[in-house]
């Protein structure tokens, strides 16, 4: 089973379109996950116990569940609940709620890393809780939160490969499909690995850049 450059090149167009699907899913679900994470993180530190509890249940549930199970659960479960969604939407949903849980914890940790004295000072000046969060706490939390967010983005990108189980032609799936019409299994997969690498490497660099910058101050 040798590496054949010709086959590798021939598989590229199919892989490219798969890579596009993977990138699309990653970008959309990290964006949705960030929105969930911000809301969830604020809920985790809320002064209202019920809100804290709800956020905590969500996070625990999502962290306890394998992403593949969540994905299949939504894919097969939602139709029986009368909700017909296409595979792409289901994938987006599963990836978003899953990464949303991890991002919730990242945002919570970021908020809690800020000295409580900052909030006390803001409130003593007559600022509302919401404004103090927005103007004082969150802008400071951002610094410490960026590196773990890029980390989560990398994890998410790699996890998108699971959507190949629900008939979405992502990068992995397109590799598998090329494999079935080519006798040589290795050549297209070299392409799959290469594309994953090309997409994750910039994020890894960004991550180490942000971590280095964090340590500088």
């Amino acid at each position: 089973m040798d590496f054949e450059f010709g086959l590798f090149v021939k598989s590229l167009p199919a892989l490219l379109s798969g890579a596009w699907m993977t990138a699309e899913l990653s970008v959309l679900s990290i964006a949705a996950g960030l929105v969930i994470g911000l809301i969830g993180g604020l809920a985790r530190v809320s002064r209202v116990a019920t809100i804290r509890a709800m956020a905590s249940v969500y996070v625990t549930l999502m962290r306890a569940m394998p992403l593949l199970v969540t994905l299949l659960f939504l894919y097969y479960g939602l139709p029986s609940a009368g909700l017909q969604l296409d595979a792409f939407t289901v994938a987006l949903l599963a990836l978003s709620v899953s990464s949303g849980a991890y991002l919730t914890e990242i945002v919570r940790a970021g908020i809690q890393s800020i000295d409580p004295g900052q909030m006390r000072a803001a409130r003593s000046l007559g600022m509302s809780y919401g404004r103090a969060m927005q103007r004082i706490i969150l802008p400071q939390a951002i610094r410490s939160v960026l590196p773990p967010i890029t980390n989560e983005a990398i994890t998410l990108l790699k996890n998108t490969s699971l959507v190949s189980t629900i008939a979405l032609t992502d990068l992995l799936r397109s590799g598998l499909e090329v494999m079935t019409w080519q006798a040589n299994t290795f050549s297209p997969f070299a392409g799959v690995a290469l594309f994953y690498l090309l997409m994750t490497l910039p994020l890894l660099w960004l991550n180490s850049f942000l971590e280095r910058r964090m340590r500088l101050r």
């Binding site: 900052q118 000072a121 803001a122 004082i136 400071q140």
Partner: peptide, 10 residues
Amino acid sequence: VFQQYNLFAH
């Protein structure tokens, strides 16, 4: 005014 100055660091 507190013992720890609590200036907004950013």
